[in-house]
Amino acid sequence: MNELKTKIRVENFNFYYDKKHALKNISMNVPEHRVTALIGPSGCGKSTFLRSLNRMNDLIEHTRCDGTVVVDNVNIYDEAIDVVELRKKVGMIFQRSNPFPKSIYDNVAYGPRINNIKEKKQLDEIVERSLIRAALWDEVKDDLSKSGLALSGGQQQRLCIARAVAVDPEILLMDEPASALDPLATTKIEELIHELKEKYTIVIVTHNMQQAARVSDFTAFFYMGEQIEFDETKKIFTMPGKKQTEDYITGRFG
């Protein structure tokens, strides 16, 4: 773990919904170009934590947080941080695929257009490159004007990945990206995640432990808002350090 560069450093991070203390003193180092999985029973705070990494939680009223989340030596909760710029750098894939009710092309081009890329040729290039990266190009290249909503569930989710990749992020946050998909589509997404880590640092929330074991290099186990354990995935799944982790992994609760 030592030779890996840390991409996200979280220190003593706390999060509150109104009075509810949802995340308690979380600290972890997320390594660059690796897949880090967040697991735990539902309501344990893993999604809340994920959404704290690109400050999506800012959108929810009556929430507050303290502690630091450092991305590339910058504390993203610093007053002087621009949330919009942060989100360009830290992309997000949601649990339910949520393509815009627009064409495939316009979905992928949405981000670049916001960044004032207007030239058709450049946009074409970005769309193609992003769709290739999301392993969707071959399936849709002849039909880019088709509505994104006309795609199958698995394709929609890959479209969302392409859309996120198109703004050139460095980090991809994935919130149970395959939970609504059939096994075949899930396999495709998992293979894709494996390829994507070459270019991106990936943090993925999953409730599926086999999936965590298959795709991730590191795993954090959350329980009741606390981070119980964080280590290499291999270690977590073979010799967990804590009793609670072992119980969860062997299916005794959750």
Binding site: D72, V74, D82, E85, K89
Partner: peptide, 12 residues
């Protein structure tokens, strides 16, 4: 450099 990149922008 990265620090500047995330710096708060004034969006008129």
């Amino acid at each position: 450099m990265p620090k500047n990149q995330l710096k708060k922008k004034f969006r008129l």
